[in-house]
């Protein structure tokens, strides 16, 4: 088991994000302990992606704080948290070069990054695609490459932003199996989804977000059987929640 105690727990306190006078994240509090899969669940536009971007340091909050246990963990490439986007960003290079580029960006030396890229591709059964241009792969393959790329960086926390929303069921199954692999390695997953079925399959903990606020934060089994908030109950019942 890897030692990930250095950057977790994560404490998010009274987080606010406004753009053009609109408050998209409205005083959000939440904590993240090591291990397991935390699913940010909620309707489209609830702010799930934004919360992850704020935690990952891609977006500066208007107010409030994002504090990783490790000093300087919030920003910078060596932060050991990585993000995989809804639509994977593939550089106009080979699959292998996509991985080595990311490793070079965080300062890994030439030989070591070639070694780590090869190990990562092997780990996720992508070695046969190593020399293919990354952008001609299927959506599912691209998403797996994106996860392998984050894994190669040896991130202990993975932010996954609706990683399967553009994929067919077969590719979705492969991504979910890949996520299970990460969890089994003791890595911490934070995943945004509006897909209830996926949340049921993967979540250990559900953070239910509506309109930029945490509506409910509960262990998955309790959330799905006895939701505490009326909005969560409505969402689970298939109603539209705003």
């Amino acid at each position: 088991m890897r030692d990930t105690s250095s950057i977790l727990p994560l404490r998010v306190e009274n987080l606010v994000f406004e753009v053009g006078g609109r408050r998209l994240i409205d005083g959000l509090d939440f904590g993240l302990e090591r291990g397991g899969t935390t699913v940010l669940l909620g309707p489209n536009g609830a702010g799930k992606s934004l919360i992850m971007r704020l935690c990952h340091g891609l977006v500066e909050p208007t107010a409030g704080s994002v504090r990783w246990a490790m000093p300087g963990g919030r920003r910078g490439a060596a932060k050991s948290h990585a993000m995989v986007f809804q639509k994977p960003v593939m550089l106009r290079r080979s699959v292998f070069a996509n991985l080595t580029h990311a490793l070079a960006a965080v300062g890994v030396g030439f030989r070591e990054r070639r070694r780590r890229a090869a190990v990562a591709l092997d780990r996720f059964h992508l070695s046969h695609l190593a020399d293919r241009p990354a952008r001609v792969l299927s959506g599912g393959e691209q998403q797996r490459v994106a996860i392998a790329r984050a894994w190669a960086l040896d991130a202990s926390v993975f932010f996954l932003d609706e990683p399967t929303s553009q994929l067919d069921p077969a590719a979705t199954r492969e991504i979910e199996a890949t996520i299970a692999l990460l969890v089994a390695e003791g890595r911490t997953i934070v995943m945004a989804t509006h897909d209830l079925g996926q949340a049921r399959r993967l979540a250990d903990r559900v953070v239910f977000v509506v309109a930029g606020r945490v509506e409910e934060d509960a262990p998955a089994d309790r959330f799905f059987t006895t939701p505490a908030s009326p909005r969560a109950a409505a969402f689970l019942a298939g109603d539209l929640v705003v």
């Binding site: 990952h56 986007f85 960003v89 580029h101 990311a102 960006a105 965080v106």
Partner: peptide, 20 residues
């Protein structure tokens, strides 16, 4: 526009993104 978030995630912000 396409790469900004990925490169930002890797810490390649501002002019560090130019070579890529």
């Amino acid at each position: 526009r396409e790469y900004a978030e990925h490169l930002g995630s890797l810490g390649l912000v501002g002019f560090r993104a130019v070579p890529t």
